[in-house]
Design a protein around this nucleic acid. Structure first.
Lengths: 145, 145
DNA sequence: TATTGTTATACTCTATAACTATA
DNA sequence: TATAGTTATAGAGTATAACAATA
């Protein structure tokens, strides 16, 4: 007889929503959407990556990604460069402005979250991290059997 | 000096995404979207509730909620009833078809998640639930200071 | 005057499929 | 033939503000 999963799931969802409310407000205040911020965060500290790779990392379909990258390019935060090795391939990279957004907002966001979670004791943080990692492993394995 | 929050946050987000991939596939297979399922789950085991209350529980703006309820009504899963006590107020409740969707899919979803998480030991589940609850409390408190 | 819910507008994301150009 | 990305289309959610009816 299995342990009831609902209480844990419920807490996971609510906890994520609570985080999303805090982080999402910050992201929107930058004039970005969540997927757009996701792209910038993925490209940060990188020399850029192929369109396809970017889609895989951010869980975006290629058609969707074209639109998101278009809008980021319109804002001047991202640039497309033709791949030197494959004529079909595009490399997406942050512009100087995009680097600046990443450099200023990503650490700021983390720093803010650090202060928010400053009162959580180290032991609990480590435990939670491990347990979440464990839970994710199970979910991902069952997700694609 | 605060404990780094990024590892825990990262695991939280990924764990939620993993859950969302599993649950989301099930929801879409019913021809519903996540917000629509959220409405049905909220109205389940209820005699219905005021439009405003529904919006508060599902974190939907009133304008957004009108559209979602419209689409659920078009599918015959939900119905609007004028409030007997307040002429401005609408009460939203599940139709028989909506009850059926709730009764068949919600427990099925939970049952499925129960089997997915069956291998997690009881102790870990309880600990995870507690720690997530604790983390959420902090996030929600800081979310609106 | 304030509140409830609808309507209107504009934008973004998503899924899907057809299309192009390279490989 | 297969792959990388773009384009096209339609639907759905979000934010915002103006609006009608009622309190």
């Amino acid at each position: 007889m299995p342990v009831p999963s609902l209480p844990v799931i419920r807490e996971l969802v609510r906890c994520y929503q609570a985080f999303d409310a805090v982080a999402g407000a910050h992201i929107r205040s930058l004039g970005l959407t969540a997927p757009q911020f996701d792209i910038i965060a993925t490209l940060g500290n990188t020399e850029g990556m192929r369109f396809k790779e970017l889609g895989e990392k951010t869980l975006c379909t290629k058609g969707t990604l074209t639109g998101i990258v278009d809008r980021l390019a319109d804002k001047g935060l991202v640039r497309r460069v033709a791949s030197p090795t494959d004529g079909r391939s595009q490399i997406v990279q942050l512009t100087a402005a995009g680097e600046a957004v990443f450099a200023h907002t990503f650490p700021a966001q983390i720093g803010y979250m650090d202060t928010v979670l400053a009162e959580v004791d180290t032991e609990r943080m480590a435990r939670l991290q491990q347990d979440l990692h464990y839970l994710r492993g199970i979910l991902e394995r069952k997700g694609k059997p």
